[in-house]
Design a protein around this nucleic acid. Structure first.
Lengths: 235, 235
DNA sequence: GAGTGGTCTAGACCACCCC
DNA sequence: GGGTGGTCTAGACCACTCG
């Protein structure tokens, strides 16, 4: 029982994208080209393209062709948590203050999160996101310095760290954990809150094909932030 | 430009399920039966079944047939938050204590949440869920009494309210909001906590085809509860 | 008009399940 | 063996985009 042909094609396309050889908006081969190239019928080639489209890796337009999707739109979960989009959706202005941006050596916790040896080079960034003038998120982020060597040279008041990463390399996977925590001294200070304050804390790890890229803690004051989601059954 | 044939078939199947005429585990027509019934090729009938399967409405087994999926497994979001499964997944024992179960008249907040006129009949249930002997979730639930008239007669130490609802009528849609809150006096008391305590609060509304069925607040102590999720790119 | 994706057909072979 | 879903083919017509 050999692997299905459509899967072979799908994996070929996926590898081209995950490896970074085809980046955002790259035009991928048409159904007919793939059918010829892999000696299959058009319907079989089509299935590979179709499934990758449903999974968010490709965008297809009638009469135009199939293209690698924007990395920032890959995952609905990632999208849900893009704070800039959310704030602008509410018609408010997003701004960002850089608190820290420096090179560090990974401590045990960070090493585990990034799957790196102890004392590996990592970048650490701390930022405060504002909605209009109100602080709404504290972002503490560790980045694998080997995978994204230019991270530390960016101006994160102009582009958010997540946007920079998504622009720079193909993020292929993400893991999220959400929990409620009491704000500690630092959080109270940066978000200008009075104790006791419950905060929603989102911990995210994101991957590229080469490994864990980034480990991030996003902390929001509970009464100012809600994460919503809708699940629908059928069409 | 007439509607695609596969969509017509898909909508037909969906209506049978959403209306409740076909319930959990009901065997749906085979690819060949649908092809004959709708005068289309097998590939077209197949597409309707296939898409409903990807959307979680059907389960298909080679050699056996296609069946209406368990309502409790319809949505990954719903599944994530099924506390019984989560506790048992951890190898611990779930139990449940009924605090309140009574008929009420909807106040403004509940009326809005359930899309009902003021002073409509609703049922209210309050329960504490335990993981082994530790309280881990406070559930406060309002149910539209007209849609689920027998709700109040159930024994919720044997079946959870969500299980009962999912068993009784087809839940077609759900909306979730998660936020961090400080535990109030009542929550501290029922979950046996000391102030100040940050809690993760999940607010859920679930629909059937006839309207909003239920409006629920689930409160968990922050340090004992995490909601995880993974997003993957491609296969 | 040439190329693209969207839909559809009427066949085919296979692995699987149940009788 | 008969029915089921899983894969695959070699065609077809259409609507769309672009040059």
């Amino acid at each position: 029982m050999p692997a299905p042909k459509y899967l072979t094609i799908k994996q070929y396309l996926f590898n081209e994208i995950a490896s970074g050889r085809w980046t955002e908006h790259h035009k991928v081969p048409s159904e007919n080209q793939l059918a010829t190239q892999f000696s299959v019928s058009r319907m079989t080639a089509r299935r590979a393209l179709q499934e990758l489209t449903e999974e968010g890796a490709l965008v297809r337009t009638k009469g135009l062709g199939s293209f690698v999707a924007s990395f920032k739109n890959q995952s609905s979960l990632l999208k849900v948590k893009n704070i800039v989009d959310e704030i602008e959706l509410r018609g408010m202005k997003h701004s960002c203050e850089l608190v820290t941006l420096e090179k560090r050596s990974s401590n045990p916790e960070v090493s585990v999160a990034l799957s790196l040896p102890l004392e590996s080079p990592v970048f650490f960034a701390a930022l405060i996101h504002y909605q209009d003038r109100q602080p709404i998120q504290l972002e503490a982020r560790y980045v694998n310095a080997r995978l994204v060597p230019n991270f530390i040279e960016q101006d994160f008041t102009k582009i958010t760290p997540h946007e920079y990463l998504a622009k720079t390399l193909p993020l292929t996977e993400a893991e999220h954990v959400v929990e409620a925590v009491l704000a500690d001294r630092q959080v109270l200070h940066y978000l200008k809150l009075n104790p006791p304050q419950a905060c929603l804390q989102l911990t995210r790890r994101s991957w590229s094909s080469l490994g864990v890229v980034s480990f991030t803690q996003l902390t929001h004051p509970g009464q100012h932030y809600r994460m919503g989601s809708q699940a629908r059954f059928g069409d």
